Every structure is written in structure tokens, then in C-alpha cells.
Amino acid sequence: MTRTTALTPTVDVRRAADRAATKIDWLDSKHSFSFGGRYDPANTHHGLLLVNNDDRVRPGSGFETHPHRDMEIVTWVLQGSLVHQDSTGHSGVIYPGLAQRMSAGTGILHSEKNDSWRLSGGPSHTEPVHFVQMWVVPDEPGTTPGYEQLEIENELLADGLVPVASGMAKHDGESAIRIRNRYAALHAARLQPGHSVDLPDAPFLHLFVPRGQVALEGVGPLGPGDAVRFTATGGMKVTAVEPAELLVWEMHATVAA
């Protein structure tokens, strides 16, 4: 991980249709960056963000137990519910408005499934779960694995851009789960038509529109699945054309070359 000062200002728009995809009977996943067998050496990360997967999982299905190491994994559910279980004994149901972070550290096993009715003993549902999973590198390797989740629905309903996961000192005491990188923060917003937010100003920004239509100042319309990678710039205004949701990573360092 490195901090850089001499950067060329760029605004790089990435359209939804250009993402790599993994589509099987239970999973429809779109990848903003290289992921799994979809490897592109020119598209491995932006700033500290290595993964931005836009996933839909069929009811009764999901990711079986699998390992991770030295990664901060943040999951944000847009529709439905996702059951998390891991080898440290943590389990829970993630739903819209609940931020969740898993620190893989020295190594962790976990599963993610769309089967919350099995915990409650109620009837099964037919709704897919739609979520975005994002990975950033930690400050240091080899830390103790950890888990945190936090309900922040009320803040989001205020129609602003709020930090939902951060390792930055300026967000201490705010309603944000903590990630183990002091140079990164994830902001989220739900905007009604005509409402706007100003993007942070940072060496690296990643704007993702998981749903709805917005207009980005100086760029134009962005739709579901569109993303913008900013380098050495920021502060632009984003305005909702229809009810929309935004996910914005603010990053003050990048992965070492």
C-alpha cells in the first residue's frame, strides 16, 4: 500500500454492460474488477478497492463455506436478506440498511446464503437477495479475524451521503462500522428525485450506482451498475433523476504496484 502525491486528474466512467460476469443457476454476479477466473491485468483495483461484485442469489442457495485471508470485506444488501456464518462463531442476517464487515486477518471461513427462513423456522421465501460485496486491503497483514455489523437505516433515510464503513480517524464516533485501513471509507446514500450530494475530494474515489438513475456533474447520466473511478479529483455533484442509491469509496492511498 502506498500514498501518492503526483497524480493526473482523471474521471473514468465504467458502464454496467462492460463488466465481466459470472452466471450460473443460483448466482448472477457482475464484477467491476478482475475476479476469480475473470482476470484482466489492466483491471485489478482502483485505489485500495480490489473487488466490487454486484450479486443476485436465488432463494435456498448461496456461497458455501470458503476461506479468506488478509482482506476487509464489506457487504451491503439492497434487496432481500443474506445469512452470514463464519468460523469465529459469528452469524447473522444482513438486510437493507445494515452494514456488515468481516476482517479475514490470519484466516477465516465463512458462508453466505439466501435462506434466512431456516433460522426462524418460518416458511421459505421466493425473493432473491441482491447485494454488493466490496473488498479493500487492510493496513497490516496477519491481524486477528473479526466481524461487525451495524443498523444505520435512520441515517440513510435522511437523504444524505453518510459513512457506513471506515478506518479513517475523521469518522471516529460516527455511525460507521470500523475497517482496518486508516486510508479508506465507504459512504452510502439513498436519494429522492431532484436531491443531490457532493462527492468527497480524495486521491482515489469509486462511485457505484447499484440502483436508480442519477446525473453526475460534468459527466451526465449514470444508471444501475454504472461506476466512475476518480483519480486526484472529487467534489462533483450527483443528483438523482429517480429514486437511487449510491456507494462511494473515499481512498487516500492505493495498492502498491
Rank of each mutant, 00 (worst) to 15 (best):
G194I: 14
F63P: 05
V132W: 00
P123S: 06
L49P: 10
A20E: 10
A244Q: 07
G220F: 03
G146P: 02
R14L: 13
S61C: 12
V219N: 03
S87T: 09
V11D: 04
L186F: 07
G60W: 00
V93K: 01
P193T: 12
H31N: 08
A232W: 00
Q213F: 05
H31E: 02
F131L: 14
K23N: 13
T65H: 10
R211E: 10
V11C: 13
G212T: 11
S175Y: 01
R118I: 03
A17S: 14
H90G: 02
S29Y: 04
M71E: 01
L207V: 13
R180F: 06
A42N: 14
D172A: 15
D25G: 13
G47C: 12
E155A: 15
S81V: 03
L150F: 02
P203W: 00
A227D: 06
F35R: 09
I94L: 08
A202Y: 03
E155H: 15
L186T: 09
S91G: 11
L156P: 15
Y39T: 14
R229K: 12
M102Y: 01
Q149G: 05
A16S: 15
H110G: 04
S87M: 08
L150N: 03
F204D: 05
I108V: 11
D139S: 11
R69Y: 00
P203G: 02
E148P: 12
G105A: 05
M71V: 14
H66N: 01
P96I: 01
S124M: 05
T143A: 05
I73E: 02
G89F: 00
L119H: 02
T44I: 12
K170F: 00
S91C: 05
S32T: 15
A158G: 14
W135A: 10
T88P: 03
T239G: 14
L161Y: 07
G47I: 12
Q85H: 09
G234T: 12
L7K: 01
E153F: 02
S29E: 08
P224D: 04
N154S: 15
H46V: 13
N114K: 07
G47V: 12
S29C: 12
R56N: 08
H46P: 15
M1G: 11
S81H: 04
S120G: 11
V129M: 01
T88N: 04
P224C: 07
E153M: 10
G142K: 10
V83L: 09
T254M: 06
Q192W: 09
W135Q: 07
D28W: 06
S34M: 02
